[in-house]
């Protein structure tokens, strides 16, 4: 039986007066692929920041990869956790090339005052090859399209040699082709590297088919969890998105994002 590597108990997080997570509990086992879905403002991103130690817990307990998180001790954990955010608005004139950006993934592991060596550059080149970006390795990062930038972000994450792979709306604002390419790449990476993956999205159409389990979030709480086929019913989605069942069914039939 797989080991539990994420164990969140009654986590409460708030930003000033806004409570982003209200007593959330979640357990994830090694090797699982968990999709987290819910409307905007549901607390999905906050849940990821709790997992990688960047979120500030008001109360509750979080244990990830054996680290019991308390304020200020998340840095050593984050070296083992890969995080891909939404497409970033990168300055087109930023003086860094693709290879250098992927190398940032190695920096946390290298530690302060040490320089990347030949082995680190080998890992970087290997990851660029894996995500199909070797041909653009020396391009300035700001010259890439959104889809290419997300591939670079995934390569940077993998260069980190993470045990846990967190993706926060990685396909948001990408076109259909780039979305499907990224979803396929995430699936391949999850399987080839035997990672534990948490994939956040607000768009049902972007939920990877590889998900073992889906967590539904609404208003800072986990509203349901289970196998995708059991959980993603029109009734549940109707509750989740405050939308009549007939409207949900119509949108699903027409493949319009819920």
């Amino acid at each position: 039986m797989s080991e539990t590597i994420i164990d969140i108990k009654n986590a409460v997080v708030s930003y000033r007066e806004n409570v982003a997570l209200q007593g959330v509990s979640l357990r994830v086992k090694a090797g699982e692929f968990v999709g987290i879905i819910g409307p905007n403002g549901a607390g999905k991103t906050t849940l990821l920041t709790v997992v990688n130690g960047l979120g500030r817990l008001l109360s509750g307990q979080v244990k990830v990869l054996g680290h019991r998180l308390v304020p200020g001790n998340g840095r050593s954990l984050r070296k083992k956790v890969g995080y891909v955010a939404q497409v970033q608005n990168i300055d087109p004139r930023m003086p860094m090339n693709v290879r250098e950006v992927v190398m940032i993934g190695r920096y946390g592991r290298l530690g302060l005052l040490s320089r990347p060596g030949g082995r680190d550059w080998e890992v970087v080149d290997e990851m660029l090859e894996l995500v199909g970006m070797s041909h653009l390795a020396r391009r300035p990062i700001g010259h890439l399209s959104g889809g290419e930038q997300q591939r670079v972000a995934i390569a940077r994450c993998l260069a980190q040699e993470p045990e846990l792979f967190l993706l926060d709306e990685p396909t948001a604002s990408l076109d259909w082709k780039a979305q499907t390419d990224i979803l396929e790449l995430v699936r391949e990476v999850h399987e080839a590297r035997t990672l534990t993956t948490l994939f956040v999205t607000h768009d049902l159409g972007c939920l990877p088919v590889a998900c073992d389990r889906v967590v539904l979030m609404k208003a800072g709480q986990i509203w349901g969890e289970g196998r995708p086929a059991d959980l993603l019913t029109s009734e549940n989605l109707s509750h989740l998105y405050d939308m009549p069942v007939a409207e949900v069914e119509k949108r699903r039939a027409e493949n319009i994002p819920v």
């Binding site: 070296k79 956790v81 955010a85 970033q88 920096y107 302060l112």
Partner: peptide
């Protein structure tokens, strides 16, 4: 010179630098 790689990562994207364990 001493902290070039940490500085480079922070300049590129502070949130990303934090997420890989850079202070």
């Amino acid at each position: 010179v001493a902290f070039y790689k940490e500085i480079q990562a922070t300049i590129f994207h502070r949130g990303m630098a934090l997420s890989v364990g850079i202070p």
